[in-house]
């Protein structure tokens, strides 16, 4: 028999590390990690584009692996490390990847951006010098409706090369 306190709608206590900080929360069994991050922790940088695991906008790092946060229960992430788009810039400085994406005009409307950044960060962590084909393959589970992907792929390759692109916007 199920104990009454673990029935449907009962709240479960979870504790996890998000962008290096210990965070706690009370969630229902059905609460996804994405909804937990957005609604309870206010980390709205992680976007929900489909809620059935196809678009990739909600991708976060879960124990260092790229993961769709709409397909993970918050309760299943108890005790895990989570990194979101908000954790990419450190001390107000953009990461090299973010900077290269900016320089490359990688994105347009910005909605898919967090998922691509996280997926690309995961790729570069594992393979710092990917080929274009490897970048396209790694990003093929993230949908962008605006760009046709070329600017995104170039951004990742630029980050990998550590190439500084001319950015007139700073003058």
């Amino acid at each position: 028999m199920l104990e009454p306190e673990v029935g449907q709608g009962a709240l479960l206590s979870i504790r996890l590390q998000v962008n290096g900080e210990e965070r706690e929360g009370e969630v229902e069994g059905r609460t996804t990690l994405a909804d937990f991050l957005r609604d309870q922790l206010g980390l709205t940088g992680t976007h929900l584009g489909c809620e059935h695991g196809v678009c990739g906008a909600c991708t976060v790092l879960l124990d260092s692996l790229p993961t769709r946060s709409c397909l993970v229960l918050a309760a299943s992430a108890d005790g895990c490390r989570v990194e979101t788009v908000e954790g990419l810039a450190r001390d107000g400085r953009l990461s090299r990847l973010q900077q290269a994406m900016w320089d490359s005009h990688s994105f347009q409307c910005g909605f898919c951006t967090p998922g691509f950044l996280i997926q690309a960060a995961a790729l570069l962590a594992e393979n710092p010098t990917p080929t274009e084909a490897e970048v396209r393959h790694a990003l093929s589970g993230n949908l962008c409706r605006c760009t046709g992907y070329e600017s995104i792929v170039r951004g990742v390759l630029a980050a990998a090369e550590g190439r500084e692109l001319a950015g007139e916007g700073s003058k």
């Binding site: 990739g56 879960l62 790229p66 993961t67 769709r68 397909l71 993970v72 589970g141 993230n142």
Partner: peptide
């Protein structure tokens, strides 16, 4: 699938 599917 894709990397973020195969990871879990």
């Amino acid at each position: 699938g894709h990397p973020a599917i195969r990871s879990r």
